[in-house]
Nucleic acid binder design. Structure first.
Lengths: 152, 152
DNA sequence: GCAATATAGATAGCATGCTATGAAAGTCAA
DNA sequence: TTGACTTTCATAGCATGCTATCTATATTGC
């Protein structure tokens, strides 16, 4: 005979909700620390890419950050408003814009990264190096399992 | 002497970005599968709590789902629009509302859970039971490290 | 009883993200 | 060259989530 309901299906048993919860907590911590710098969490991959590879197209930045094009467009609008990037007409392709990093962004990038590192450290406080590596590896596999694009 | 730049600080090395990326991918898969049911990913913990514990206050639902009160207010508005819950004046406290699950929601909950399970399975495809458990345990620890409320 | 405080929701404003769609400009084949 | 296709971006509309702040109603301590 069946037990009536031991626990009528626990959504908390799936890693999906924990991934989501962790993501939201990370966002909150980040945004709080980055606000004084006029940075947002989403800005970091963009500023990083621009610093490392020089001016780029919106398309390239979207691919780098793994977000859709309209998401990147809105993100760049906010970053422009915050004085972290500039958009100039692309020479040779009137459809496109060249996105460049500003001095302000270049100056503040190290501090933003410092905040990132601190939050990351807090998130994995009490983890051994091995556990950190394991978490990263498992998450990579989750992403591979879900990402429509095979590239990584 | 220093190497010029081995890799000028890689944000992808931190689990934080992978958690975020995985979370977004999960959302996309979910929303796509739940849309035909008039469900959203965020609805599930709410409908689940209402089914299991009966009518509740907004406050209780927010705590259960680990979201802030205004987030739950907006969520309930959408759920009400989609015919999944009803809000009635609370007898005995004129400030509060009683949130109740609708028949439609009760009917569709199993199907929504089925979709959830399938996405979860896809996310951890190729994982051993042990790896699944490890991922869950590490994520729990991340959440504990970041959650201001000690409870869990 | 009543003023001070606490609690339940509502609202405004914003950040991130998505899909769907349109417009402009480049490319290429006939 | 020119019509069809591709590519790059913009816009609209929406879901989730947050903080800050306001209102209305309870509760509590004198």
């Amino acid at each position: 005979m069946k037990v009536k309901k031991a626990t009528p299906w626990d959504p908390e048993a799936a890693p999906t909700f924990w991934i989501n919860h962790a993501s939201r907590l990370l966002m909150r911590h980040f945004e709080q620390r980055l606000r004084p710098l006029d940075f947002g969490m989403a800005y970091l991959p963009v500023v990083g890419a621009l610093e490392e590879h020089g001016p780029q197209l919106q398309k390239q930045l979207a691919e780098h950050a793994h977000v859709e094009q309209p998401t990147m467009a809105a993100l760049l609008t906010r970053m422009e408003r915050d004085g972290l990037i500039t958009r100039e007409p692309h020479p040779g392709d009137k459809r496109a814009s060249q996105i460049s990093i500003s001095e302000k962004a270049r100056d503040r990038l190290p501090q933003a990264r410092e905040q990132l590192a601190e939050v990351a450290a807090q998130a994995t406080a009490g983890f051994s190096d091995r556990e950190r590596a394991t978490l990263l590896a498992l998450l990579r596999r989750v992403v591979e399992n879900l990402d429509p694009s095979i590239e990584d």
